[in-house]
């Protein structure tokens, strides 16, 4: 197997990493591949893809808050250096762009930018509403609102992570909503991933897609923003409750349909009976057992 095929497999492993375990997976892959040189270069695209898809958060230099690294957060490509701009991201809250290192997960080289004057009022209003929604329902959530370039649309992203390697678990909640102002729709996606690996490997992966119609008629940005976040709060609350119902149903019905907790008789099996007297008698003739 040549080096590029090995890198391909390593990349595929990295993309499957549970929340907060990318470094553990990378360490395992390093030992397995044992070719740090080609690995370092080779897995960068996979790490970038993982970070963008998983809404990895960065400490924005010069601020006290965190910002999401995602496709929506990408800074507009600069003509002078298109390769470097691939890894520059916007923090619209502080109007700062920063460079992001996909291996160390560190942000650097902050630069202020001028937001689009036309979209900024609505974006800012959505951000204010998003942050108060986060404070109400997320214990450690990070949220960002991005103006879609050359369009009146907005993207709201939320991520909450909890990593507890000491107790062998980790979890991530991601949600993303597109506010299509002209089309009057709010379309969203909620993803939850949980890994619990104390003496085992148990994973939850859930996905929920929703499309909501926004009330028609133009309204001030602050009004629209609080309406949008009220709809999101309602949908996410309902989803979380329905997820709980799904657990209940899986536990009571699906689990039982696969394997009952006890037989219909509600008693454990009488093995002597199961073996059957005839069968037992036949085998009893092999009295000597097997060790003799």
């Amino acid at each position: 197997m040549d080096s590029s095929e090995r890198i391909q497999i390593a990349s595929n492993f990295l993309l499957q990493s549970p929340p907060g375990e990318i470094n553990d997976v990378l360490n395992d892959v390093r030992v397995i591949i044992s070719d740090d040189e080609s690995l370092q270069e080779g897995v960068l695209p996979a790490l970038r893809e993982y970070n963008l898809a998983q809404f990895i958060v960065a400490d924005v230099p010069g601020t006290k808050h965190q910002s999401i690294v995602s496709t929506a957060a990408r800074a507009p490509p600069s003509e002078s250096d298109s390769e470097a701009s691939k890894d520059r991201f916007l923090d619209p809250r502080s109007k700062t762009s920063f460079a992001f290192d996909h291996i160390t997960l560190e942000a650097s080289d902050p630069q202020t930018y001028e937001p689009d004057a036309e979209s900024e009022p609505l974006r800012g209003a959505l951000e204010t509403s998003t942050l108060s929604y986060l404070a109400a329902h997320y214990l450690e959530g990070v949220g960002c609102v991005y103006a879609v370039p050359d369009s009146p649309d907005m993207v709201i992203q939320i991520v909450a992570n909890k990593y507890n390697p000491t107790n062998y678990w980790s979890g991530r909640w991601r949600s993303e909503y597109k506010v299509a102002v002209q089309a009057g729709t709010l379309s969203g996606r909620i993803l939850a991933n949980v890994h619990y690996y104390e003496q085992g490997n148990v994973q939850l992966a859930s996905e929920h897609n929703v499309e909501i119609t926004l009330p028609t008629g133009s309204r001030p940005p602050a009004d629209l923003a609080s309406k949008v976040l009220a709809l999101i709060a309602d949908e996410e609350g309902k989803y979380q409750t329905s997820l709980n119902d799904t657990y209940q149903e899986m536990g009571e019905k699906t689990f039982k349909a696969l394997r009952r907790a006890l037989p219909l008789t509600r008693q454990k099996i009488d093995w002597d009976k199961v073996l059957g007297y005839k069968l037992g008698a036949e085998l009893a003739s092999n009295k000597a057992g097997f060790a003799s």
């Binding site: 108060s132 404070a135 109400a136 329902h137 997320y138 214990l139 959530g141 909450a160 992570n161 909890k162 678990w169 980790s170 979890g171 991530r172 909640w173 939850a192 949980v194 619990y196 085992g200 148990v202 994973q203 939850l204 996410e236 609350g237 979380q240 409750t241 997820l243 709980n244 657990y247 899986m250 536990g251 689990f255 394997r259 907790a261 006890l262 454990k268």
Partner: peptide, 29 residues
């Protein structure tokens, strides 16, 4: 019986609890 119970009550229950550690249905404020 032991492992089925562990999976259903402990392991799956734990993953649900972790979701509730990430997001709260109740208004925290």
């Amino acid at each position: 019986i032991k492992m089925r119970n562990l999976l259903q009550e402990v392991y799956f229950g734990k993953t649900r609890d972790i979701v509730y550690d990430l997001r709260s249905v109740e208004d925290l404020e």
